[in-house]
Design a protein around this nucleic acid. Sequence first.
DNA 1: GCAAATTAATGATTTATTCAAG
DNA 2: CTTGAATAAATCATTAATTTGC
Lengths: 226, 226
Amino acid sequence: MEGGLSPERHAAAEPVRSRWTPKPEQILILESIFNSGMVNPPKDETVRIRKLLERFGAVGDANVFYWFQNRRSRSRRRQRQLQAQAQAAAAAAAAGSSSSSGSPPTSGAALAPASSMGMFAHGAAYGSSSASASWPPSSAGMMGDLDCGGGDDLFAISRQMGYADGGGSGSAAMSSQQQQFYYSCQPEFRYTYTILFRWILDGVLLVTLGAPVGRRIIAGGINNHR
Amino acid sequence: MEGGLSPERHAAAEPVRSRWTPKPEQILILESIFNSGMVNPPKDETVRIRKLLERFGAVGDANVFYWFQNRRSRSRRRQRQLQAQAQAAAAAAAAGSSSSSGSPPTSGAALAPASSMGMFAHGAAYGSSSASASWPPSSAGMMGDLDCGGGDDLFAISRQMGYADGGGSGSAAMSSQQQQFYYSCQPEFRYTYTILFRWILDGVLLVTLGAPVGRRIIAGGINNHR
DNA sequence: GCAAATTAATGATTTATTCAAG
DNA sequence: CTTGAATAAATCATTAATTTGC
């Protein structure tokens, strides 16, 4: 692939902004929101999120929308894949364990429940509010529980973060990069949650999530090894 | 899939989930654009079209987007269905031919070629132009030729139009309903086309489409029977 | 070290399916 | 039943990681 591709000498300024490349901070925000349970933000929330992200770089509503769409899709696919794998393994084990009968022995336990997955149950409805359409995306991502299974979700970002290069190198290059903000969802939404992000200079980050259910996630000390 | 899904009685406060009901004029415009070959207008075109439609009633960009999406999808499905039908018939005919045949013998023969359909060939690339996204829909509906096969396309509207009740009825009821406007695509687009609509009072409409390829469609005398 | 060649991720589009209003 | 709305699945296309040969 990639056959004919002229280096495309982009002149001076900003010639070809083909696709949005989210900044690490933006990814963190998105990831956090997603993990907080809002997997399919309605339009107004999307706008809100976009505004928030804009603090770290140009981004449009559509980008946010796409991000969530892809995130959902791929998360689900991964899950399915894992499940299938587990099932296959279970089947194999079952086949090998007892000459006959046997049947699904609940398999490896530690994994997510083989077929529980209520997944996000996208059918829900909510206040809606938006009258006549003005943008494709809508609906709400109602969900019962965060799967939180497998290292897939929250920590996937650690690799993406460009922070803390290789061996420590305590460079205070980022100087006053300390940021802090607050994201709260309208009470209209199913559950009011708040997210408080805080960046500490050299690769250590701290995320605090407060959800009505009392869920709380704290991730500290991200260090990328490469 | 989709197994368990409770009707999910969404609590009270569900205002109005009303949906856009395109006016006959709007449908005509959309249909004409679609039949003119632009089956998948990029965002900017969508906006343009929306503005045009607004002359006949409130409508949002998303409505236009959805309309084209559904139109494409359903058109294709119909086509597929027909094709399958034809194929099945052909198979049946072939199977029965040896002995005594008798089944649908290709019937009217006027049907679309069973398997020509290169369809829209959506893979193409073009100047792109659109900078950072701002709305999901995009891309261009490049296509080589209008299939124009089967009475499916252009004349499908006749049923939708509420015009010209029953018999001829030369009633000049609509009085000054004469409209006229001009739609032209940006030269930026692959092919520049123009559409000239013109309404004549009692159900007779005249559509003139000019395409770069020189294609021309003229439909006259729509009368809905229902 | 470095850039071309490959591969892996992932942003953006399109298509198929589904739900529900009219 | 038709069709607007919404979303998930599949696909395309571009960017970042990475490998590789020099």
